[in-house]
Design a protein around this nucleic acid. Structure first.
Length: 829
RNA sequence: GCCGAAGUGGCGGAACUGGCAGACGCGCCGGACUCAAAAUCCGGUGGGCCUUAAAACCCGUGUGGGUUCGACUCCCACCUUCGGCACCA
């Protein structure tokens, strides 16, 4: 059966050959066929940094397996690729190398596209676009205008996060531990007039609809939930004693309101300076407020910063019990959250407790444990009692449980016009303007007469000019371009100026998945019929670093567009896979650590198929993957082994003998079972679990089995069945070598256009099974029996075995447990 | 501090529904081929005990307990690592 064939696995020739074949035949072009069942698979498109890294290779290899598999399963598959092409690195590189950002970006795209093709990823390249192209950003601007017209885009002056290194403002989501997400520089606060998207209007839906996403990792949903940070509580209006001003506080524990002994305002709170005006505290408070304003985010909010409070000399009146309480200004109260003012209940909040001890403020107990024996007094109180309990010292509310009081007090507040039930979110509005050049211009014109005016839709796109000096100076480089800036007001025709800030690039990536459904339509952002057919994305794949940023913004956009009836889905991504990182020596690959493995080198040395095979085999996709040169060697060896096996069997396969009705026996039967068990397992592993590592290991077992089998007096029909299926099963993982082997087997057409094989349930059937015999739960023996042996016979046979007798002799058999086709457990005493 | 995920051979990992722990691969050891080496192929490989060898036996999935005929899998407590959030009122 086995014949020596000397044919080397020449991956270079094979890979180039088939890549150009695919390109020439447009094998992966998605046809418009709405009758077919669709499958939209998408990997997060990359920023064109210049070269692919291993993380990209992993991301796109995973997606490609699924895309190829689904095609073979008969789906109409959309698998597109494009470029998230606006962004800071282009400007930084341009400054460094003196190349225009546009050119730098386009060169990078060209190179990365070449690399993706070399990896053999099956994209429909006819749908490719870059977000920096006016054909695309015209519609980004158009979408901005839709938000603007619906009151979801607004400009306001506010203290914002400023990254001095990037010379631009940042959204809250882009500040990590008080530092810039991109460059790790400590972020400063600046009072600037900026554009925002009103994502907070969607907070409730963004939160609730997480429940509609069973196909998302729990981890990501929890991160978004925490980020949105919904708290239910009440707003309570205290009156400033002297000025009569209302001071609204937000609390989640209105049941403790009778225990309020002080109040703390954020330094930025508008009432602070009014309260101390013309008092002896004015200077002290003013200095303190100034000091706080100048502190960086990090210095203000990190945990080890001491809590400081300054007494304003003023008092407020508790509307529920008339208590007169001191008003303080404190560094730890944030203007951006709630109302910027908090009530201090030291007996029932640990932070207030410590604060009260430090400044000698009174403590008043208003909640006691349900169990009267555990009641405490001020004397034995060493920390705040933060649990819920029974109300005391609370007037008409005494004796209620906290739960009852939360509602009752809220009702009372509402009835008396001194507060109301309310919900507060941690989520803030999305700051979208950037003082940088390489981004999508905001389509707004400022007119002295008419104010901010939207650029009329027919005037879009507002083109980003190329002849701009773009060194970052903290103001938009577009300010310098007179030609860009000067325009006329669309309303009154008078001289006017354009907005010179550009948009956060996360806006560009918040709708690109919609554009892929009809990428070149010129009359609208996407065609309704196409977007309705293709959306949602059935499977989205990308790094977990976008758990909040991109994934929440994209959900927000989709919901806005849904409300505008532009799309008919409320969520963009049905299933999400967050792939793990690629590590080397236990750490993320990075230039500074010098542990970078370049995909180019690996493809050059072993070929794309080996690179893909290793990456998919080494670890399940959601886990981190430790790079191993020896592992790559192993993947390469495996492919060579397959190559040799297929070559040695090609003539047997070509002869094409079929098994004419004779029933298979012995080894023939066994190998046939292995073939069909593998077909089943590989499909299950790809489809249901995304466990490519176990799918591949099953194929390896098939190869091992076939290798042994073809050395025996193998049945040619079984060999044929085995080899053909082997090539088909491998084709989503290693598309080039399987294409070549398919041809070697004398097949016509591309292996990637074949149907995914069906397993034959008959072949999986067994006549005999191995039963494990346990005594008291320990494996003591094994025996082979007929599949359909009944329980009594099985038990009798097991008890008759010498090894079993050894353990049961002179002992009482209490019971036996049998698991059909698997095991029998004999319990003895 | 809070939330989440994970701890299995020398290493990456497998065990899908509570039923043979360690599939598959790497590494290592032995053998074949070779003048020799590489490549390739064949065989072995959790630890202990015993040993000339084998059989047999014992231990073993982070630690300690529990449920169960039976636990990597379920429950309780703890330890470690990683990730997210972190004065959020």
């Amino acid at each position: 059966m086995r014949r020596k064939v000397s044919m080397n696995y020449d991956f270079k020739t094979i890979e180039t050959k088939w890549q150009s074949y695919w390109e020439g035949r447009k094998l992966y072009k998605t046809e418009k066929d709405f009758a077919k069942q669709k499958y939209y698979i998408l990997e997060m498109f990359p920023y064109p940094s210049g070269k692919l890294h291993m993380g990209h290779v992993r991301n796109y290899s995973i997606g490609d397996v699924v895309a190829r598999f689904k095609r073979m399963k008969g789906y109409n598959v959309l698998h597109p690729m494009g470029w998230d092409a606006f962004g800071l690195p282009a400007e930084n590189a341009a400054i460094k190398h003196n190349i225009p950002p546009a050119k730098w970006t386009m060169d990078n795209i060209k190179n990365m596209k070449k690399q993706l093709k070399q990896l053999g990823i099956s994209y429909d390249w006819d749908r490719e676009f870059a977000t920096c192209n006016p054909d695309y950003y015209k519609w980004t601007q158009w979408l901005f205008l839709q938000l603007y017209k619906n009151g979801l885009a607004y400009k306001k002056k506010a203290p914002v996060n400023w990254c001095p290194s990037c010379a631009t403002v940042l959204a809250n989501e882009q500040v990590i531990n008080g530092a810039c997400e991109r460059c790790d520089t400590s972020v400063e606060k600046k009072e600037l007039s900026q554009w925002f998207f009103k994502i907070t209007d969607y907070a409730e839906r963004l939160l609730n609809d997480l429940e509609k996403l069973p196909g998302w990792p729990e981890k990501v949903k929890i991160m978004q939930k925490n980020w949105i940070g919904r708290s239910e509580g009440a707003e309570i209006v205290f009156k400033a004693e002297k000025t009569g001003d209302d001071i609204r506080v937000f609390t989640t524990r209105q049941d403790t309101v009778f225990g309020v002994t002080f109040m703390v305002l954020a330094p930025e709170h508008p009432l602070v300076m009014k309260l101390v005006k013309a008092t002896d505290r004015e200077k002290e408070i003013k200095d303190f407020v100034e000091e706080m304003k100048n502190k960086s985010e990090l210095d203000r909010t990190s945990e080890d910063v001491e809590k400081i409070g300054k007494f304003t000399g003023q008092y407020a009146i508790n509307p529920l019990n008339g208590d007169r309480i001191p008003i303080l200004v404190g560094n730890y109260v944030l203007m951006e959250y709630g109302t910027g003012a908090v009530m201090g209940v030291p007996a029932h909040d640990q932070r207030d407790f410590e604060f009260a001890k430090k400044y000698n403020l009174p403590i008043k107990i208003v909640i006691q444990p349900v169990d009267r024996n555990k009641w405490y007094t001020l004397e034995d109180m060493e920390e705040a009692y933060t649990e819920k309990g029974i109300l005391v010292n609370s007037g008409i509310f005494n004796g209620l449980t906290s739960e009852e009081a939360l509602d009752k007090i809220a009702e009372h507040l509402e009835k008396n016009g001194i507060g109301r039930k309310t919900v507060t979110y941690r989520l803030r509005d999305w700051l979208i303007s950037r003082q940088r050049y390489w981004g999508c211009p905001i389509p707004i014109i400022y007119c002295n007469e008419c104010g901010a005016v939207a650029v009329p839709e027919e005037d879009l796109p507002v083109i980003l000019p190329f002849d701009v000096e773009f060194n970052p100076r903290g103001v938009s480089p577009l300010l310098e371009s007179e030609e860009f800036r000067k325009t006329t007001c669309p309303k009154c025709g008078r001289e006017a100026t354009r907005e010179t800030d550009t948009m956060d690039t996360f806006i560009c990536s918040s709708w690109y998945f919609l554009r892929f459904t009809s990428p070149f339509t010129t009359e609208e952002p996407f065609k309704k019929e196409d977007v309705d057919y293709w959306m949602n994305v059935d499977q989205y794949i990308g790094g977990v670093e976008h758990a909040i940023l991109h994934l929440m913004y994209a959900r927000f956009f989709t919901k806005v567009l849904y409300d505008q009836k532009l799309v008919s889905v409320e969520e963009p991504f049905e299933n999400l896979l967050t792939q793990g990182m690629v590590l080397k020596d236990g750490a993320k690959m990075s230039k500074s650590k010098g542990n970078v493995v370049s995909p180019e080198d690996i493809v050059e040395k072993y070929g794309a198929d080996t690179a893909r095979m290793f990456i998919l085999f080494a670890s399940p996709p959601e886990k981190d993957l430790e790079w191993s040169d020896q592992g790559v060697e192993g993947a390469y060896r495996f492919l060579k082994r397959v190559w040799r096996l297929v070559n040695e069997c090609r003539n047997t396969v070509k002869r094409g003998e079929e098994n004419e009705g004779t029933e298979l026996k012995g080894e023939d039967r066994k190998i046939k079972r292995l073939i069909h068990a593998t077909i089943k397992k590989v499909a299950d592993d790809i489809e249901q679990r995304f466990n490519f590592n176990t799918a591949i290991s099953a194929i390896m077992e098939l190869v091992n089995g076939l290798n042994t089998y073809v050395n025996t007096e193998a049945n040619p029909a079984v060999v044929k069945e085995g080899i053909e299926n082997l090539v088909l099963l491998l084709s989503p993982f290693v598309p080039h070598i399987t294409e070549e082997m398919w041809q070697l087997l004398g097949k016509k057409g591309s292996v990637h256009e074949q149907k995914w094989p069906e397993y034959d349930p008959e072949a999986l059937k067994r006549d005999e099974v191995t039963i494990v015999i346990q005594i008291n739960g320990k494996v003591r023996d094994k025996m082979v029996v007929d599949v359909d042996v009944d329980e009594e016979t099985l038990k009798a046979e097991a008890l008759g075995r010498p090894k079993v007798k050894k353990y049961t002799e002179g002992k009482e058999i209490i019971k036996t447990i049998t698991v059909p086709k698997k095991l029998i457990n004999i319990v003895v005493k």
